[in-house]
Design a binder for these strands. Structure first.
Length: 691
RNA sequence: GCGAGAGUGGCGGAACGGUAGACGCAGUCGACUCAAAAUCGACCGACGCAAGUCAUGGGGGUUCGAAUCCCCCCUCUCGCACCA
């Protein structure tokens, strides 16, 4: 952790650290390399983190100014393409670069250009991103390899001060941005990488830079090299030999500025003292607690203008001093809460035995919006906690699942007001009117719920109207959890209807049979087969996060129970099977609609005083789930021509004979020569015929 | 621009390389009702009277067999974005 912006010698109220930083950059190499081991994380998140960390290999090199400017005699450049140094035609610096400032001090044109770039800043710069503009400073720099050659130095709006060194060497033939810039200002475009099939004597770059691999040409000692890695190594070695530069690894990741001028956050446990500077609050006085008697309606920092909170004696010398009145970014709290959750009542930070037992988190579920910041901070924080002995793992989350968001259509009145779903009546044809006025409403995009678009659904109202189980069931049933789901009234009503249907099935359920039947009817065997097949299907679906499929399977079993209800009421074995199936529905649905499941189970088992959630998970009986006969698809040349029903263990010859004998198949095989017979047991027969 | 992912009925979506469209929503018809709601039953990819044919963004390929695997293209979504 670093403090930056310290102004020594200033009065105490100014004697503040402008911002606290967490040095996450120190972890960059490990945070990147360890991504490979997070096998149970989505590829997408790992890629996003890798891009965010942004490792690149290249070289830093210095270009000497032919004539020094205001004491500056060289410009340092970062490049990933030292192999194209001979293709240089200009050097470009960011408008915020010190050399640009030096030039602006004496050159009104440069000053105007720099000011213009600053004015456009970030917002408009994005819009005008396509337009590359520059200003020729008149300064020239020498080439590190080519004796006597010199190149113009431009200030360019497309060079970023935040990345690399804020300066680049322009190689237009092999970089599209440099090419756009060179064409605009009529700068040279010397090619130094030859595409396959081109002639070195005649090759020229047109409107598109050649950025792929080729043979190095017109490049002195690099000529003839074909492998880019080899050419880069050779160029770097030469730079190092001449003392003009060196190979470096560059990172995009910046340190995490993690102090905030807000009330809601963890106080930063340091005291600022006139004579001792920044003094940590002693461990015995931790944690520093936020005051509760605060005023939010006064301008400025809440903690700063609290009358007493910040005034404390310096822990080191006892003189009057002040607490830091910034708070930590709330991402700090989410970077280690999972460790605290292992032992929430621990007197210290965490209980080491508890975190050793529980961490890493077996399965983390969260929104994709946390792909980078939270998940990267937590990974780094976990490493910091390991180094300081609080826990013993590097990676906090072994497996990650990113679920989608709940979305809803948005509505807008003709005068532009956003309307809530409650203020709108939907018509059958998809149009909508404002309930109060009857006026037409524009039905907008289906998007993430937000207060500004007013397309939110209040969970409290849903629970009041339908109950929490309906909401759960609908959300799970609508689509796969990794995708965004659309909340619709019709969908909620459909889920609600199902809860009512389940309840009716339980109300009309038979009493729990006292003993198992001796004989099983065909109908009862079929129902039990369905029950046990679905127990394993739901189990598998839940394990795979395929909650929508688990829901569909529960529907299937429910439909089978409804069919059985209409069956032979005097069939004792069917009644028994029905009870078993209903009990299975209650227990399989329990994770997804717990309240109704408990109610169902209790009604099936009067006197039961436990909870379904505590019962062991149901296990399917494979023997009962096994089919008594299987339907085999019969294809000719891969096209379905019929189906046959056979015993599960039927031998190949008899299945093939039955397949060939199927009426439609037989008709189509007539007079044809069968060249190959394929039988995939229990699934399919395929006849390959000649001609 | 770079990277990742996805395209299946009217909609959400199923489908170890093996009967495409499970299940739900919407819809159609019917039962019940004086009527409506609720409920229950049947139907529900396209073309066709039918037999059948065609269908998983488009085009090739591998295979006895492709929504699924490979190549090219198109479209969409997401992330990063003058990253040198």
């Amino acid at each position: 952790i670093d403090g930056r912006g310290w102004r020594s010698g200033a009065p105490v109220e100014k004697k503040r650290l402008a911002q606290w930083f967490y040095r996450i950059t120190a972890d960059a190499p490990e945070l990147l390399s360890a991504l490979d081991e997070l096998e149970k994380w989505p590829e997408r998140v790992r890629v996003m983190q890798a891009n965010w960390i942004g490792r690149s290999e290249g070289a830093r090199l210095r270009f000497g100014l032919v004539t020094p400017e205001a004491g500056i005699d060289e410009v340092e450049v970062y490049t990933t393409r030292p192999d194209t140094l001979y293709g240089m035609s200009f050097l470009a610096i960011a408008p915020e670069h010190p050399l640009a400032a030096a030039v602006a001090a004496r050159d009104a044109g440069a000053a105007a250009f720099v000011a213009e770039c600053a004015r456009l800043g970030t917002s408009e710069a994005v819009i005008e991103a396509a337009e590359k503009r520059g200003y020729d400073t008149g300064i020239r720099v020498a080439h590190p390899f080519i004796e006597g050659a010199s190149y113009p130095v431009w200030i360019a709006n497309f060079v970023l001060m935040e990345y690399g060194t804020g300066a680049i060497f322009g190689c237009p033939a092999h970089d599209q941005r440099d090419l756009d810039f060179a064409r605009k200002y009529g700068l040279a475009v010397p090619p130094v990488v030859l595409p396959p099939g081109e002639d070195a004597a005649t090759f020229q770059v047109g409107a598109k830079a050649f950025v792929d691999d080729g043979v190095i040409i017109h490049s002195g000692f690099l000529d003839g090299l074909t492998a880019p890695a080899q050419a880069k190594r050779a160029a770097i070695a030469e730079l190092e030999r001449r003392g003009a530069g060196k190979g470096v690894v560059n990172w995009r990741l910046r340190d995490w500025g993690f102090s905030r001028q807000r009330y809601w956050g963890t106080p930063i446990p340091v005291v600022h003292c006139h004579s001792c500077g920044v003094v940590p609050v002693p461990e015995t006085e931790l944690p520093v607690v936020l005051p509760e008697d605060v005023q939010f309606d006064v301008p400025g920092k809440v903690l700063d203008h609290h009358p007493t909170w910040k005034h404390v004696p310096c822990p080191a010398c006892g003189a009057p001093a002040e607490r830091d009145t910034d708070t930590l970014d709330t991402f700090v709290d989410s970077s280690w809460y999972f460790a605290r959750f292992c032992s929430p009542r621990a007197s210290g930070v965490v209980d080491r035995a508890a975190v050793d037992h529980w961490l890493p988190v077996d399965q983390y579920i969260g929104g994709i919006e946390h792909a980078i910041l939270h998940l990267l901070y937590a990974r780094s924080f976990t490493r910091a906690m390991r180094k300081t002995g609080y826990l013993g793992v590097d990676e906090p989350f072994e497996a990650l699942f990113t679920q989608g968001m709940v979305t809803h259509a948005s509505f807008r009145a003709t005068d532009g007001r956003w309307l809530t779903p409650d203020e709108v009546d939907l018509r059958g044809d998809g149009s909508a009117v404002e309930r109060a006025s009857g006026e037409a409403v524009l039905v907008g995009r289906i998007e993430k719920m937000s207060k500004s678009k007013r397309n939110t659904i209040d969970p409290g109202e849903i629970i009041d109207r339908y109950g929490a189980d309906t909401a759960r069931w609908f959300i799970l049933s609508d689509n796969p959890p990794e995708r965004d789901m659309e909340w619709t009234e019709a969908g909620a009503v459909g889920a609600f209807r199902f809860t009512q249907r389940l309840f009716r099935l339980v109300e009309s359920a038979p009493a729990r049979p006292s003993s198992m039947p001796n004989a099983w009817s065909a109908a009862s065997r079929a129902l039990r087969r369905t029950t046990h097949r679905i127990i394993s299907a739901v189990t598998e679906a839940l394990d795979d996060f395929a909650y929508n499929v688990a829901v569909a399977r529960v529907y299937e079993l429910t439909n089978a129970i409804s069919d059985a209800e209409r069956g032979d009421a005097t069939d004792a074995s069917l009644v028994w099977a029905r009870f078993e199936a209903l009990e299975a529905v209650a227990r399989l649905a329990a994770p997804m609609m717990p309240h109704l499941a408990e109610e169902m189970y209790t009604r099936l088992h009067p006197g039961f005083d436990g909870v379904v959630a505590d019962l062991p998970w149901l296990e399917a009986d494979a023997a009962l789930a096994a089919a008594e006969s299987v339907i085999i698809a019969v294809q000719i040349l891969g096209k379905l021509r019929g189906t046959i029903e056979v015993a599960p263990g039927a031998d190949d010859a008899s299945v093939l004979a039955a397949a060939a004998g199927e009426a439609n198949v037989a008709r189509q095989l007539e007079g044809k020569r069968i060249v190959k017979r394929i039988y995939v047991p229990g699934r399919i027969v395929n006849f390959v015929i000649a001609g």
